[in-house]
Design a protein around this nucleic acid. Sequence first.
DNA 1: TTTATAACGGATAATTTTGTCCGAATTAAA
DNA 2: TTTAATTCGGACAAAATTATCCGTTATAAA
Lengths: 144, 144
Amino acid sequence: MFSKACEYGIRAAVYIAVQSLEERRVNLKEIAKAIESPEAFTAKILQQLVKSNIIDSTKGPSGGFEINKTQFKQINLSQIVSAIDGDSIYTGCGLGLKECDENKPCPVHDKFKDIRDELRQMLETTSIEELSLGMKEGLTFLKR
Amino acid sequence: MFSKACEYGIRAAVYIAVQSLEERRVNLKEIAKAIESPEAFTAKILQQLVKSNIIDSTKGPSGGFEINKTQFKQINLSQIVSAIDGDSIYTGCGLGLKECDENKPCPVHDKFKDIRDELRQMLETTSIEELSLGMKEGLTFLKR
DNA sequence: TTTATAACGGATAATTTTGTCCGAATTAAA
DNA sequence: TTTAATTCGGACAAAATTATCCGTTATAAA
């Protein structure tokens, strides 16, 4: 469904969010360990999230990553996915055709449209806040 | 969503089905041209479909690929996807966790489950027959 | 029986994605 | 002011996926 980079990106964002709830800024090493991801690769992904203004970063000692609490409700999965994988998941044809729309649909166009609309709906309505609360309550997990 | 190989595989299967409706057996060259796919790569994918008993092949002059009409109703998208991409699309965790289930769910487990169940439902209930009929009527397309 | 056609199978190559390394820039703490 | 911690950025490497090549096998037609 998503690229590996995107999976790591979502996991990292959720972890950062959970820690930000407690006013904790976290660094790369801690994040990679917490979500069991390759450190250097995760660094690249975090940089993308910083550039997309989804997370904030601070250099130097006691630096690291955090999410501004005022944005908690506004950041959703859709933004993270778009930042990392682009929006091909929404716009691309299910069978890989370059040109596929209502006028010239592929054989599965309508059926895929339904599924993708629901996926989009889900990603857009799932906030980072919601996900971090589930984590905080110990109901969900980010590794294994 | 699917791998490129899987996209080509579905397109090829639909094309073969449409031609089989008219009792036409088609060869690799024709298929690759019709669906605008790389010939040699498509050959590999067709071999997978043959091994999975989704399509039939015949060697030699006037040989090629076809789909047994008696199977038209039984072959669905789910079988093609499973044959090429495996069933990770059904079973894998949306965030890439090795271990993710009701007992130890990732933060998006439930939401993804809903989407994937619908995807599965769609793939399982969409037959190759249905798709080939849309093509035959000139309503859907396999290239561009 | 010979020949040409087409799928099959294995090796190899190109491209993309995933992952690593390392030095530069920044900045808080000593 | 110096040092150490940390992100940032670019180059590089490994792995996976996509794609090609070419000889082998089977078989229909000549």
